[in-house]
Amino acid sequence: MLLQASQITKRFGHRMVLNALDLSLQPGEVVTIFGPNGAGKTTLIQILSTLLKPTSGTLQIGGINALEEALRVRPSLGLIVHEPLAYLELSPYENLKLFGRLYGLNGLEQRIADLLDEVQLTPYAHEPVRIFSRGMIQRFMIAKALIHDPALLLFDEPFSGLDLAAKQLVLKRIDHERARGKGIILTTHNTELGYHVGSRFHFLLNGQIETVAEKEDIGLETLSREYEERLKG
């Protein structure tokens, strides 16, 4: 069991954002969580990445208690959210070098070169990230999230604000990592792409999570219809 979240509750002051969520993930699975804005998707991803502590509940990653031993668990995670989580004044190369060193990686130069090549950023390897387009920053974020070859990937709205080419790259990447046996959780409100890439689907509505179905058991149209009905009700 790669990730096991149990009864995760999060309150900000008096506002209940997540209400007793359960979620699990095995290697090779891609879990897509659909939800509208404000449903708590970002908060959930932040908690699963151990960057935010839940009000109550337990979280196990790779069998380790992620709430007590967050520092031990984090090197197994790759996170992609709206913010780059990096230094825009530095180049992709410098960023990857810094984070690679902090992760304690070997053969860093080669890794960086290969990764930048895969995300097609090699010509810009030494330009400050600040000047990149949104799509290029997204590609940089993918490289940064994968530099340490994490077993678990967390994506918060990976498709928003991207052009078609960048979306294709993200889809390909998710597929590729799944094939390599990684576990992936992503949140999105894009039913089509989320369905395409996922192997299991959940709805996150008003802070509560519902298991919908495995991919084999449901078609895109049915899923979209159910999702829309939930949004109305």
Partner: peptide, 16 residues
């Protein structure tokens, strides 16, 4: 500098 673009969170994620 750390706050902008969530750079500090990037550092936290390395487990440092």
């Amino acid at each position: 500098i750390e706050r902008m673009n969530g750079a500090l969170h990037g550092l936290r994620l390395t487990g440092v």
